[in-house]
Nucleic acid binder design. Sequence first.
DNA 1: AATAAGTTTCACTTATTACTGAAACTTTCA
DNA 2: TGAAAGTTTCAGTAATAAGTGAAACTTATT
Lengths: 167, 167
Amino acid sequence: MEFTEAKAQFLQTWGALGSQWGINKTMAQIHALLMISPESLSMEEVMEELKISRGNASMNLRGLIDWGIVYKEYKPGERREYFVADQDVDSLARKIAIERSKREVKPALRVLEGVKNFDDDSSKEAQKFKKKTQELHDFVEKADTMLEKIINQKENWITKTIMKLMT
Amino acid sequence: MEFTEAKAQFLQTWGALGSQWGINKTMAQIHALLMISPESLSMEEVMEELKISRGNASMNLRGLIDWGIVYKEYKPGERREYFVADQDVDSLARKIAIERSKREVKPALRVLEGVKNFDDDSSKEAQKFKKKTQELHDFVEKADTMLEKIINQKENWITKTIMKLMT
DNA sequence: AATAAGTTTCACTTATTACTGAAACTTTCA
DNA sequence: TGAAAGTTTCAGTAATAAGTGAAACTTATT
């Protein structure tokens, strides 16, 4: 396989993977592009390379900056902004995990908390409902705690975690 | 909050959570409904309760069965099929994790493997590309291994994992 | 302060994914 | 075996999410 082909396939696959994980295709692709690029890129260059519109590029670059995995870079004497991706894969994954917990898990927990304390009418249905929502709440809370523990092992967290789980 | 309201809100939220995690809304809702239901339900009842069409109900029930988190149940003397959800939240989560790894992570790994062994033309771009794809491949592989380790602690895996990570 | 280069926004279009419902098929039992 | 009850499929439709591009806005420079 040639470099150009490999690159295209990589951008393509990473984009698809991204959309399965709640990050939209373009956002994942821009991020992938910046990661493999030896120099920082301007918005123009991103648009050109991925054949996307200005609006799309702008929105998604901003999104990536919000997620904290892409940074702006200013070159001396140049007006134009350049973009760089966080080069550390570990820290990237950590940031994504934190962000998803904040955006999805935490809100779900709040709803489960509210819902499990409904006015119990002591019917069979109500009993079962109470039991299950309680269980789900506890489970989600635990899973979230686990995620936090894993990602808080600052450096090389995956390796460290695997080591711990070896026993 | 009343039972009926709590139930509606729960079904609603669980559906939304599902779609963020790659399980479509209806599928997540059917699953939620079956989980909180004290009796097994027929397809008719599911359709009725969630106000969805026969086709939709059929497709998604089948999907849930494929995921291995819902089972068919036959009542003696009755022709109709009834559906029950796996009641164990731990085993449910484990099954979802296994399935997602199989469907998403493994294929992505295969592509990364192919792509990182492209014909190197020794340009700066190619060098960087090789380095990054290698890093990403190793990372994804490690993460997947970790997931496997976690879920292989058969019983109460979340609790067990947290205990291990406590140190 | 005028202008030109750069950047962002947003109403609209396109693409993707999910859902409907009628028709086809299957099973059971009289 | 045929008719009724039950189940599945799938072509068409609807809902949702993503992307476009021109216009508006910002900033730096003279």
